[in-house]
Design a protein around this nucleic acid. Structure first.
Lengths: 332, 332
DNA sequence: CTGAAAGCGCTTACAG
DNA sequence: CTGAAAGCGCTTACAG
């Protein structure tokens, strides 16, 4: 049988009120003697207050929900690590939901999480959800998407700027036939990156050719397939990948076709996953501070929960081009 | 103000008992009319029973805790995906804990999870925790470790067999100077793999040389550093890595040293992460069904929770050698 | 077919 | 310095 506050009270010969007050460091000062007796009973029985009972009266679940499109995505797992890292310190726990990119599942999860009275929700979503409608009054934080920009509490990464720099870098290095791997279903990060690609070409007086674009799922396999199709069709000197995972797939596609990187083709990614520095050749990519993003989202959410009247700041991160060995100057 | 069962009751002009029974499909049959009125009130207010109140009386949290050494580890994130995938169907949610390989944190999490009355715990741990002591009566499942074998409910992967096959494969292909990257702190999976390496060498009449072994953290960076040290010291024809991540680091170490894979050195990993098929060259490794493991752990835990009297079976998975292009025959 | 009442394990005014 | 009692929002015998 689970030990309850009543057991402790009777063991210590006091009322439950006293036990509760002592355990929560509340109320008036108790005699050293009773405090000692209560603490001893607690220690002897390894008692801790029932979570549900406590919450029913206090309504402080110390739990946040986190919804990601894909737990196995290296970018998101890093974000999760950041969130967990901050929240753990605060004795919060996180209820993890894997939406598999599905908006239907996201809605289901949001509802389920709210049912469970989570203190807040962190949502990383590729979809343009009408949050106002689903989140009700639950404090929430949106990660890594400019889709549903709000008054405050936006965490934004300058993906446009970072990706633009990458494309400009290729152009500066003599590339003119530059392809891109992106995602048809409007995977949220891709929009800015695509824009950057498009505008950078135009600003440099290069033609934009839609046949230089290929769509695919945002994954290694997706990148592999998209790149395979694209490389079979076009003769490119450089390929911009929607993210690092797609770039990893593109590496394989290039090798399969007998192309050497960067001698025959330059490749750039986006995210700067740890692994990219170890690839052969190391990948030129754009750094996005995944851990930081998660950590900050958690921090701001915590603030929104505990200081509801506070204004939550907007956070902007830069995305910096990291030049490695997968790109080369072909000007000669 | 949150809407409660009382509100629904008065809106529908019935008692809370009636509302509760109807919502839970319990009790005697109610008149179509009252059922309709109740359901309408529920729909109108978007009411759902308070999670904490409900749990306090029913004690069915529908929540399991999951503790992993590292969320960003590709193997574990795949396991998490499997767990989530099964449990989601059952309307369970998972409280995710990232222990960072620390036993202290694991203990803290186990305690915290139990405080929250989770229905069960799935623990993937590199440490030999005295579970009996910490898990109390909470149903639990241990993942991917033969460390704390119990009467039942063990999920075991034949790592020894799979790794043995890998080493044998190298030997069959003429390799005699075979190194290994492992983990000093006794990372749990490593023990079996190390044993397999050791015994396979001996069984084939090869000398075991402790200077062919190098330790390091089980990560890309760790593999890189360990391999760098090892390759600087020894002249090997093949290198067995504790897992795929270390192998990825070892690739880089080999390239840095100007070695070509597999011409100058053969490399094998363990796990068969999706990415390994895309590496350059594709990695020869041993397949471990990460998603399956998670899915099965969740399934068995669910069973242990809901049918406590059931005997939970032991599950054994094979680990199969996947030969790709990072290894080569040097017999000629 | 439906309701009044007890109880789950806490915390929190309030009183002394 | 300490306790009796109400209340959080449900569910569940029990009674009718």
């Amino acid at each position: 049988m689970k030990v309850t506050i009543k057991d402790i009270a009777s063991m210590a010969g006091v009322s439950t009120t006293t036990v509760s007050q002592i355990l929560n460091n509340k109320g008036q000062r108790f005699s050293e003697e009773t405090r000692r007796r209560v603490l001893k009973a607690v220690a002897d029985t390894d008692y801790s207050p029932d979570y549900f009972a406590k919450n029913m009266v206090q309504k402080e679940s110390k739990t946040v929900g986190m919804i990601v499109p894909d737990v196995t995505d290296l970018f998101f797992s890093k974000v999760i690590e950041g969130v967990e890292s901050y929240l753990n310190e605060k004795d919060y726990m996180i209820l993890l939901c894997n939406s598999k990119h599905s908006e239907t599942m996201e809605r289901k999860y949001i509802k389920q999480l709210q049912n469970r009275s989570v203190a807040g929700i962190i949502l990383a979503s590729p979809n343009a959800i009408e949050l106002e409608k689903y989140m009700r009054s639950c404090p929430n934080m949106l990660i890594d998407r400019g889709l549903n920009t709000r008054e405050q509490g936006n965490i934004l990464v300058d993906e446009y700027g970072g990706y633009y720099d990458a494309v400009q870098y290729l152009i500066d290095n003599g590339h003119k036939k530059i392809g891109m791997l992106t995602n048809e279903s409007g995977y949220y990060e891709m929009t800015d990156r695509y824009q950057a690609y498009y505008e950078c070409l135009l600003n440099n007086g290069l033609d934009y050719d839609s046949s230089f674009i290929e769509d695919g799922p945002v994954s290694i396999q997706g990148g592999y397939e998209a790149a395979t199709r694209l490389l079979a069709r076009e003769n490119l000197t450089a390929l911009c990948c929607g993210n690092d995972q797609m770039a990893i797939g593109a590496y394989r596609a290039a090798f399969d076709k007998g192309l050497s990187i960067p001698d025959d083709i330059s490749i750039v990614g986006f995210d700067n996953l740890e692994i990219t520095a170890f690839l052969n050749p190391p990948l030129t990519t754009v750094d996005q501070p995944a851990f930081e993003i998660g950590y900050t989202a958690a921090k701001l959410l915590f603030r929104a929960i505990n200081f509801p009247e506070d204004q939550i700041p907007n956070i902007n991160y830069e995305a910096n081009l990291i030049v490695r060995a997968s790109t080369k100057n072909i000007d000669r």
